[in-house]
Amino acid sequence: MRAPEMRYLVARAASNPSELKGFLSFQMLHEETMDDDVMAQAAYCFEVQLVFSARGRGLGEFLMRLLERIGSYWHMDKVMLTVFKANKGAFRLYTEKLGFTLDEISPGACLSALRARRFDYEILSKPCNHQIENGSVLCKQ
């Protein structure tokens, strides 16, 4: 968390700015692809943490959509994250609500089902575009 490259989106209560509601940590990285000669530019989400009272209210979705816009603004190829398979709620949020899919380097995408079962996580990603609409940069939906 103290890496100089790490960046944070911090959520505070509107009524009391000293009241922390959660954060998202991320870095802009060069990520491997299945092509040994190609690296992808990625806005990589390392962690989303919300206080219990802020969960299920759209704050995590809001922080992730901000990261998508940041990735697009900086011309990243994609937004990426790692999610534990056991975290079903997070997996549903990322895939069903936010449109993330298994990244090409995720165990579930590049290994046989038998070998992929050995991993307790998947790597998800969502491509970014750099389309400007009403002055705002958008990621593909």
Rank of each mutant, 00 (worst) to 15 (best):
F91H: 12
R65W: 00
G99F: 02
V79F: 04
C45K: 01
M64E: 09
L9Y: 12
R65L: 10
R69T: 13
Q27N: 00
S18K: 10
L93N: 11
E68Y: 02
L114R: 06
L59A: 07
E61G: 12
H30A: 05
K97H: 04
S15I: 00
C110P: 09
P127C: 10
L138E: 05
E19I: 03
S15M: 11
A43G: 13
I105F: 03
N129Q: 04
G22W: 01
T33P: 05
D77S: 11
F23W: 14
K21H: 10
A113I: 08
T82G: 13
D103T: 15
F84D: 06
K140Y: 10
L111I: 00
D35C: 08
F62V: 00
K21N: 03
T101N: 07
K88S: 03
Q131K: 14
R115M: 15
C139F: 08
N129P: 07
L59Y: 04
F62I: 00
G60R: 00
D77A: 11
S53F: 09
G135Q: 06
T95Y: 02
E122R: 04
S18N: 09
E96W: 13
F46G: 04
A90T: 03
S136E: 15
R92T: 04
R55H: 02
A3E: 08
V79T: 15
A40D: 01
E104N: 05
E133G: 15
A40P: 01
E61M: 07
Q131V: 15
L20Y: 09
R117K: 15
C45G: 02
E104Y: 09
T82S: 07
D120A: 15
V38C: 03
S125R: 00
G89Y: 01
V38D: 00
M80C: 09
L81V: 15
K21S: 05
Y73R: 09
L24E: 02
S53Y: 07
R92L: 05
C45M: 10
P4G: 14
A116D: 05
M6Q: 14
N134Y: 06
M39D: 08
K21V: 01
S15H: 15
F52M: 14
K140G: 15
L81N: 13
Q49E: 09
L63I: 13
L59E: 02
S25N: 14
E5P: 10
V48R: 08
D35K: 11
K97T: 05
L111H: 05
F84K: 09
L102D: 00
S112P: 05
G135F: 12
E133A: 12
G56W: 07
S15C: 07
M34S: 10
K78I: 10
C139G: 06
G71T: 14
E19R: 08
S72A: 12
Y44T: 03
F26V: 11
L98N: 05
M80S: 12
L124M: 02
Y121W: 03
L9T: 08
G108K: 10
Q141A: 14
D120N: 15
K126C: 12
E47W: 05
D103Q: 05
L29W: 00
M76K: 06
A54Q: 04
A43Y: 00
